[in-house]
Structure formats: structure tokens, C-alpha cells
Design a protein around this nucleic acid. Structure first.
Lengths: 340, 340
DNA sequence: GGTTGGCACTCGTTCGCCCTGAGTGCCAAC
DNA sequence: GTTGGCACTCAGGGCGAACGAGTGCCAACC
């Protein structure tokens, strides 16, 4: 049975442990929080909490430390989001409003998030596969060299260089450009890729070769999942505050190099729903000492990407959750504005 | 006086210390390197080397450790570049030949460099300010919304969105596009920016407003030094091998977050000239324990950007220098090919 | 029945101690 | 100039004692 006071005790333990990084004992607990009961009572509660697996004693003569299960209960039942201070809100909006392009938005958000939370922040670039094609531009750099530029609804731009076997007249290029845009503008990227590869059959024979070359590259760019894996990371210096280097910092540093791993960590939480993954709950056993606080972002509740922070299980969940949500909302808003 | 044998002794000390991370004594030295003299002789030389400041004794009963000055002498006089193995060469060329665009080249090189050297690798994106304009594309997304795309000689693409006060006809846009390209194609970016701002006066009055808006944005993008500061970093996990966390790892992690700092670290060594900055020789006193091995890259000896590695002063200089040079050459070659 | 104060007990941490051994500097001999 | 010998230094490791934070349990209390 977990009654109210036991929850209070758990909350106090989590808060103290997060603040001090040291196992917390019954006496310190009643002193620092106005629990209104004696240390002995708290000890009884602690024994019960330990029995049920919410806290744990590193060794007999030490205080208690929350377990992953304990943090989970804390997050689910106890954590009320810390409201962002006015100054913080202002910092977010002025910083992000000044962003000039998509890259800039991502860079600035990730930086901001790491500063707000003093954790490692991760922001995924808006997913390529979920966006639609806004425009395709073909630019002849030389008569046999065409730069293909793909502009997506998110503001993302991809470019590729194509070498042609034969020269392509400007008028042909213009025709081709029109044709490509006809079948792909406004269309989801995967569908556009499919439509584009069918193009060569629809054009005049003398354009077929060039069209085929360009269509191939374009389809390739549209289905290039490499760019789906782009993420920005900031705040690795905050890892320096970690206690145990080998079990906590090193695996995390390694994970941060692997963008695929990062994306899996972030997961796919819905827009406006902050997900918390605590220690072993995550997919990687090496990261059993780290937690992830993440959420999705995108205009109109449409999931375009994820962002979040990673840190030690012993982290400030309420604060991180609030910051993650606040930044995600601003990013969503900005993407929305750029898109109208 | 530093004679040949003393240099041999210094080289042996550096090599052993780099390998073992422990102060090296006279006995171990004669055993592991065929110096052909007795430990006592080596001790005399060591005393002399210490006198002259090339090596240093952490405490009385310990072996010797090279000083920054010692590493400097080692690098200047002693380090012959370790030739890359055939396998390494092949890895470099196959990896980098597979790169699809500029971003990809940079990402892959930085990754490669960190793997080859097992250090933190840094690659600066080709400098915006040194490139020329290859093409400017104007795309009307809506009648009052124009996407400006700037394609540079390095393959870099910048894009900006412009909102117009009034609608702009397609024919006007085409005219404007032609005019912009006329004054800026092939021109160094700073000059192009200047030329573009003069455009509004050359066009028909009814286009002037739109032209002005577009020219402003374009000039802004051309002179945007923010993007000059872009760098890619990889291999931070290698920091985990560092000994002292607080004096070595933390300041470096912090520096890695500050791209401006990184660029200053990389410096501006000439293409094909590998520069080594050892410990305190660098501009930041907090980074007194780290060295930088860097070089410039760019086609035809033309400096477009820098790349290099940072690591502890106790690092494998010959290996790092060779890897840095090899990667820089490949990158230069690729940029050159893309440009012909 | 839950709460409290008291008390014996546990055990990780810290400190001081000694010892060991790697490495040195110096000197006399070659 | 090189070498072997030798006394000296001193960081690091191992050991044991003292310390103290924190506990569990029990009897008393409300």
C-alpha cells in the first residue's frame, strides 16, 4: 500500500537526491522538508518503499536512493511541471523569433534547450519523409551539368548535381522543370518520388535520357533516408557534471555520435505529449543510467520530428519536462508560421 | 647543446609516454629502444634535457615526461609522418568518393578523421566569404512569396524566404533572375553582394520594390558570417580515454560547443602545410593540456577552410599529422572535381 | 494502530602508518 | 665520455583503527 505520506517521502527523497547526488537519510529528510513526523516514522515508510522496490539502499549504513521504478512513480504521480519563468519565456521567444531559416531554428533550439535544462539536448531535423514537395528547381550550370534543388514544405532544401551525357537545351530544361513540378508539387515526398520516375516515358524521346538521369537523382534525393537521420546535439559539456565517467558518460558520448541511436532514443512521442524514458526502460542496456525526456513537434499537431534532452536518471524531471515542452511549442509555432 | 643521442632519447621518451601514459624511466627506455648505451648514460642525457626544459619530472622518484617544449622539438625535428597504410588510403578514398553533396563530404570526412586518429576531429565548412557565386535562383512559391536560393562555387547552397508587399509577375521574376545572375555569377561573394544592392536602380520602377526586397535578402545571405562559422565535430567519445577529467576533458567539451572558439583553434594554416599547436602555444589557457593538429584544404592550393584534430598534448603526432594531411588532400581533390 | 525516542549495530569512509620499489643523482672507475 | 655501484627520495598500495552516518528493532506513548 502506498499512502499519501509515503508518496511525500518518495518525492522528498527524489528531490534531495537530485539536488545533492548523495543517498538521503531519514534525519536529513525531515529537516529539509517539513514532513511533520519524526525520523523514525520516515524510516518505517522508507522500509516499506524499499520493500516495494521504489527506493534502494546502496549499502547497509547508507541512505536511500530512488530506483528507476521510484523515478517512474515520481514522474507519473508527483511531478508537476515547473512553470517557466517569465525571463525564460522571453529568452525562448526572442531567440527563436530571430531565426532566419530552418537550419537556424534547429541550431538555436538545441542550444537553448541545453542551456535551459543544463543537460544534453537533441533536436531532430523535420523529417524528410513526412513533408511534401514545395518546388523543384533545375538549374543548368553548364549545358551538361544540372543542379537539382528540392524545396520541401518544411523549408528544407536538398540539392544534387547531375552530369548529363548530352547537352540539354534551355527550353527542354524549362519543359522538364514544369513537368516535374506538375507531378510533384504539393505531393508527399514518397509519392512524388514514384511519380517522378515515371516521367521519362511521358516526354519526347530526345529528352528521355536527360530526364531519366534527372529523375533518378531526384527520386534518390526524395527517398534518401540518410537525411532523415539528421539531428543536432548540444550541451555535451554538461556531461562533465556526471559522477561516474565509465558507466554514465562514455556510453552516452558514444551514443551521441550515432545519430540512428539518438533517434531511437528520442522515440516518437506525440506532439504536446512529453514522454519520459527512465534508465532501463530505454532500448539500450548501456544507457541504463540515463533518462530521456522527449516530445514531438510540428505544426497543427502533425508530427514532423522530435526533440528532447538526455541526462542521468538522477535529473530534474519537472524542469526538463517543462523546458522540453516549451521549446517544442515554440518550434511548432515557428514552423507553422513559415508554412502558411 | 642537444646532440644526436639526446634527440634519440627525447624521441624515445615521447614515444613511450604517448604509448603508456606513464612517466618513463631510464631503464625501461634502454630496454624498449635499442639505444646501445647504459641506463646511466641515458640518465645523464635526461638530466641535460631537463636542464634545457624539454622534459620534466613530476616528482623526485618518478620517470620523465615531455614538456610542451619537448613535444615541440619532437614535432619539428623528429616526427617523420607515419605513412598511411594501404588499407587506410583505400578506406579514405572509397568513403569520400561516395559522398553525394557538400554536407555529405564534410560529415564523412570528420567522421573518418576521428576514426583514423582516435581523437576529436573538426572540419570547417568551406568558407562562404571566399567562394564565388555560381548561380542565384528565384522561385515564386506564391505570387508574393519568393524563395531565394544562392548556389556557391563550393557546392554550398543557402536559401532564404522573402515576403513581397505586392505580387510579382512571372516574367518580372525571370527578368530579375537574369539581372541578378548577370551581375553576380562567377563573382566573389562580397563583390556580388555589393553589385546586387545596386540592382534596384537599374530595373523598371514597378519592379523596384520587389527587387529591393530580394536584393536585401540576397546581400544579407551573401554577407552572412554566421554560416562562416559552421563546423562539424566528431569523435567526442574518444575524450573518454583522457586521464584527467576536470583539467582536460571538461574545458575541451566546452570549447567544442563554441564554434567560434573551434575555428580560432583550427587557425588558418596553408593548404598542404600541417600546423601543430602544442598545449600553451594555443590561444586558450584552459586548453593548456590539449594540442591541435590542423591544416587548410581547398582546390588548387586555394584555402577554403580548415580541418584537424584536437587531443591531449600527449598524442600521436606523427599519426595525427599524416591522417590530417591525407584527409585534407582528399577533400581538396573532391572539391576540385566538383568544381571543374 | 500508528508514532516516537532510544539504542545497539553495521559498514563505508577517512586517516595515519609502514613498506615497497621504481627511479634518480652522484661518484669513482674504466 | 661511459659505466656500474650505491645511497636516497618519494608516490602508491596495503593495513588497521577510529569515525560517524544511517539503519532496524523494540518498548513506550498517544
Amino acid at each position: 500500500m502506498v499512502d499519501d505520506r509515503k508518496l511525500d517521502v518518495l518525492r522528498a527523497i527524489v528531490e534531495d537526491y537530485v539536488a545533492t547526488e548523495e543517498p538521503v537519510g531519514s534525519k536529513a529528510l525531515v529537516e529539509r522538508h517539513g514532513l511533520g513526523v519524526s525520523p523514525a516514522t520516515v524510516r518505517n515508510d522508507m522500509a516499506a518503499l524499499e520493500e516495494e522496490g521504489y527506493i534502494h539502499q546502496p549499502h547497509t549504513s547508507a541512505g536511500r536512493v530512488p530506483t528507476d521504478k521510484g523515478y517512474r512513480l515520481f514522474v507519473d504521480k508527483l511531478a508537476t511541471l515547473k512553470p517557466m519563468s517569465m525571463a525564460e519565456r522571453r529568452a525562448i521567444s526572442t531567440l527563436l523569433d530571430g531565426a532566419v531559416d530552418l537550419d537556424d531554428v534547429v541550431q538555436k533550439s538545441v542550444r537553448l534547450l541545453s542551456q535551459l535544462t543544463r543537460q544534453v539536448a537533441i533536436v531532430q531535423y523535420p523529417s524528410l519523409s513526412r513533408s511534401t514537395v514545395r518546388h523543384v528547381e533545375l538549374v543548368a550550370l553548364t549545358p551538361t551539368r544540372v543542379m537539382v534543388i528540392l524545396i520541401l514544405s518544411t523549408g528544407r532544401v536538398e540539392q544534387r548535381l547531375v552530369e548529363l551525357d548530352a547537352e540539354l537545351a534551355d527550353t527542354d530544361l524549362a519543359e522538364l522543370r514544369a513537368a516535374v513540378n506538375r507531378v510533384s508539387a504539393g505531393v508527399q515526398i514518397a509519392a512524388a518520388a514514384a511519380a517522378v520516375v515515371d516521367l521519362p516515358e511521358a516526354v519526347r524521346p530526345e529528352q528521355a535520357d536527360a530526364t531519366r538521369a534527372i529523375a533518378t537523382v531526384l527520386a534518390d534525393a526524395m527517398s534518401d533516408h540518410r537525411s532523415d537521420e539528421r539531428v543536432a546535439v548540444s550541451g555535451t559539456a554538461n556531461l562533465a557534471r556526471y559522477g561516474d565517467f565509465d558507466t554514465a558518460v562514455r556510453p552516452l558520448l558514444e551514443a551521441l555520435e550515432e545519430h540512428v541511436v539518438l533517434l531511437k532514443l528520442l522515440g516518437e512521442s506525440g506532439v504536446d505529449a512529453v514522454t519520459v524514458r527512465i534508465g532501463h526502460e530505454g532500448p539500450y542496456s548501456e544507457l541504463a543510467a540515463t533518462s530521456v525526456v522527449a516530445t514531438g513537434y510540428g505544426p497543427q499537431e502533425f508530427h514532423l520530428g522530435s526533440l528532447g534532452v538526455v541526462g542521468p536518471t538522477r535529473m530534474d524531471y519537472p524542469g526538463s519536462m517543462a523546458a522540453v515542452r516549451a521549446v517544442a511549442r515554440y518550434v511548432s509555432r515557428i514552423l507553422d508560421e513559415g508554412n502558411q
